[in-house]
Nucleic acid binder design. Structure first.
Length: 419
DNA sequence: TCTGGGGTCCTAGGGCGA
DNA sequence: TCTGTCGCCCTAGGACCC
């Protein structure tokens, strides 16, 4: 059996952990730059705030309904997430952390246990240990565990947020209840295609022929179908090393000058290099992209990307900064209002398994320099060490006007209690 | 005036060597 | 030496996830 454990309204719940006054009050959490709503408490959902709502359009609603608005605080959410996952690991060694707020657990050999009561116990332990409420769904396959979890969440009062699909009747009933667009792995395009042939719920999907599903939804769709039929096809994934690393941002205002965009792109490349060194990898290619603001129909649009192969596998900030600048020079066009840019490093290989190249080799000084840079940044705070293209008096930063303190990861922001 | 960021997997199609 | 075929590799793009 698999379990899918999902934290309820995770970001909003995290904000409540150190601020219990917010219990039962509406909360929304905004994306980077305070752009869109990316998480809502149940109360905010009931007030009709949609997912992805642009914050500026809803400002009046927020005030009118006393909605508590937060900028996203990833250090806090990441820390609470790892605490939740640690508690879950006490129940089974087979845990796949699927996302910041979700994990699949495999319960092999639990045939004679009462899974429902295990679910309730997990829930109590996590809520007591972290303050975050969870929902738990059990089923014989991962896709069905997702369905069970949905039922647990939807009918929280009746199920106590724990639901087990353990017989054929429950499986069929659940699939007939689940709309096709809510099936894990069925997005907008597939929903449209399936609706067109009269499939509106998950049960009808499982009744399609394998060949139709294979043809129109590839092996991914077919695996999903079998999983929903109760034949385990998807197993726990082991935590794989990343295959690409990206740093991309929208700008707080539109940029016109090459030097301004170049400074951002350089900083993104350096950030990618730091992430590479953290996971002890090298990359052999780097992509740089720029985009204008697609929402501004009144302005001329432009967007391009370029991939540059590096001369040798590298994770040096100096190298990647250099390639990023070369890339930007190649794609930047004067006269456009740039709103977004990014750097993605690809072709990742372990640091200690380098393919030798015939004509060029890495500068042997880079590795020790990067080592010192990383150590200084840890000791004195991030971004203290700057590289050539970066401005010393960096003016720009993400808009985060409603940021809560990093209660659990920064000593200076720890909660204070007055008696 | 303001509209996120970071990933994965799969397929089709072209280039290329055996 | 030329040509056809097969399979591998690479890339772009599509679809999905949170």
């Amino acid at each position: 059996m698999f379990a899918l454990v999902d934290c309820n309204n995770f970001y909003a719940s995290c904000e409540r952990v150190f601020n219990p006054d917010l219990r039962d009050k509406p909360i929304v959490v905004l994306s980077n730059n305070d752009g869109c709503v990316i998480a809502r408490s149940n109360e905010a959902k009931e007030l009709g705030v949609p997912m992805g709502a642009p914050a500026f359009e809803y400002e009046k609603e927020f005030i009118k309904h006393n909605i508590n608005v937060f900028s996203s605080n990833y250090p806090l959410y990441g820390d609470i997430s790892s605490r939740v996952m640690n508690i879950l690991r006490e129940y089974t060694p087979d845990v796949e952390v699927y996302s910041i707020d979700e994990a699949f657990l495999k319960f092999d050999g639990f045939e004679y246990y009462n899974l429902n009561s295990i679910g309730l116990e997990m829930q109590q332990r996590v809520t007591k240990g972290t303050g975050v409420p969870i929902s738990v769904g059990f089923a014989p396959t991962k896709a069905l565990a997702k369905v069970a979890n949905r039922i647990a969440k939807k009918y929280a009062e009746k199920t106590n947020s724990v639901y087990v699909i353990d017989d054929e009747n429950k499986r069929v009933k659940a699939l007939k209840w689940l709309k096709i667009e809510d099936v894990w792995g069925v997005g907008r395009k597939h929903t449209q295609r399936l609706n067109n042939i009269g499939v509106i719920n998950a049960y009808q999907f499982t009744k399609l022929s394998d060949s139709w599903v294979r043809k129109h939804m590839s092996v991914v769709g077919l695996r999903l179908k079998h999983d929903l039929e109760g034949k385990p096809t998807l197993d726990l994934d082991s935590p794989a090393k990343k295959k690409m690393i990206a740093t991309t941002r929208s700008f707080e205002k539109m940029l016109l000058e090459f030097k301004d965009v170049n400074e951002r792109v350089g900083t993104f490349a350096i950030s990618c290099a730091e992430k590479l060194r953290k996971q002890k990898s090298h990359c052999n290619a780097i992509m740089v992209f720029v985009n204008t603001n697609g929402h501004r129909k009144d302005l001329e649009q432009y967007g391009r990307n370029i991939v540059i192969k590096t001369d040798y596998p590298t994770n040096s900030s100096i190298d990647l900064n250099k390639y990023a600048q070369l890339g930007l020079k190649a794609i930047f066009k004067q006269g456009y209002h740039y709103k977004k840019a990014g750097v993605i490093v690809m072709g990742l290989t372990p640091e200690n398994q380098n393919q030798l190249t015939l004509y060029s080799k890495p500068n042997p000084k880079h590795s020790p320099i990067m080592n010192i840079v990383d150590r200084m940044n840890i000791a004195y705070g991030n971004n203290k060490i700057k590289f050539g293209t970066q401005s010393l008096g960096r003016q720009w930063k993400m808009k985060q006007e409603k940021l809560s303190p990093r209660y659990s990861t920064n000593l200076n922001e720890i909660i204070t209690v007055t008696v």
